[in-house]
Computed example of a mutant assay.
Amino acid sequence: ASQAGSREADIHTAGEIWRAHGWQVEMQPTRGPGDGARIARQAAADGFDVVIAAGGDGTVNEVVNGLAGTQTALGALPIGTVNVWVRELGIPLQPRAAAEALLACRPRAIDLGRAGDRYFLLMSGIGFDAAVTAEVRSSEKRRLGIFAYLLRAVNLATRFRGTVARIVIDGKPIRTRVLMVVLGNSQLYGGLVKVTSRASIDDGLLDVCIIKGRTLWSAPFRLLSLITQRYNIDP
């Protein structure tokens, strides 16, 4: 309850900062999946200049799916678990400082990736990381933060198996056994490691990182290459 109260206080403070600088601010709470996209879509239809997602990367993703293809800008107030998008942009992680930084921001056009019928702003993962994300519960994220993902990853690592996949990149097919494939519109993976270090959010491209292997324990050097950023020269 105290954490929720802190988030509400941060949002209230941010609103006061923006209003003090002449912004007209309307607050809309989300109560469940899909609310962020619906609210953002309606805001764009109503002619709002910007929609600021107050939350983490899940909230940002919801808002992106409501704003895609519109002229309404996206902003983010970091009160989530990891806040990768905010880290990617270099916006302060402290909510008050982030609110003040947003006052000086200027709109820019950026790329979006698409997986099925949903857009993504950062990355889309297939394999191990997607399995970890699917296993992390919301209650664990609230209680443990980023450690919820790390604990699930350790638990899953002992039983996860790679699968043979056929991947087509720029028209060239690749058939191999993979543990994980990451398509990056941005660079930071989990806010910590630059898995797709050459990616840019406005170059019109998605970068691809493929981790090969049968089990996580069979590919320690490839996993180490993520940490040391030697994967760009690892075939």
Rank of each mutant, 00 (worst) to 15 (best):
I110F: 06
S124K: 13
V25Y: 01
I52V: 15
L93M: 15
V84Y: 07
A45E: 14
A130M: 04
L93H: 13
R114T: 03
F160M: 08
G162I: 05
L67I: 11
P95K: 08
R41P: 02
L112N: 06
V51C: 10
V50G: 02
E100Y: 00
M27T: 01
V84S: 07
L122H: 10
A76G: 07
R142N: 08
I126P: 01
S138T: 12
D46M: 08
T59I: 08
I52D: 00
S138P: 03
I52A: 01
F48R: 15
P107F: 12
G56N: 02
G145Y: 09
G162V: 05
E140S: 15
G75F: 05
E135R: 15
L103R: 01
A68E: 10
A45N: 07
A157H: 06
L150W: 13
T81R: 02
V84A: 13
A20D: 10
N155L: 12
A97T: 07
P107H: 12
L89N: 09
G125C: 14
G47H: 01
E88A: 11
L102W: 04
N65G: 06
V164M: 06
R19K: 12
S124Y: 13
L93W: 14
N83S: 04
L151Q: 13
L151H: 10
R143A: 15
Q28N: 09
R159N: 14
V25L: 03
L144Y: 14
F160D: 07
L144V: 03
R143G: 04
N65E: 02
R96F: 00
V63R: 05
G162T: 05
W18V: 00
V51Y: 07
V84W: 04
G22L: 14
R106E: 14
R143H: 12
G127H: 06
N83E: 04
L144K: 13
R19I: 01
N83Q: 03
E62C: 10
D117Q: 11
V136M: 04
L67V: 12
Q28H: 13
W18T: 00
A76N: 04
A40Q: 03
I126A: 03
A54D: 01
W18C: 00
G47P: 02
G145W: 07
I79E: 00
D46H: 08
A73H: 01
P78R: 02
L93I: 14
V84L: 08
A97P: 04
V50L: 10
T70V: 09
R118C: 02
R41N: 10
A99W: 02
V154K: 03
G127Q: 05
H21F: 11
G80N: 12
A53N: 11
G125L: 05
D49W: 05
L150T: 11
V82L: 08
W23C: 14
T158A: 14
V60A: 06
G75H: 06
M123S: 04
A131P: 04
D129V: 07
F48N: 14
A104E: 14
L112I: 09
G55H: 13
A131K: 09
G113V: 01
A104R: 11
D46Q: 15
A43L: 12
A68F: 13
W85Q: 03
A98P: 06
R31G: 15
R161S: 07
A101R: 05
T70L: 08
L103N: 01
G66F: 08
N155Q: 14
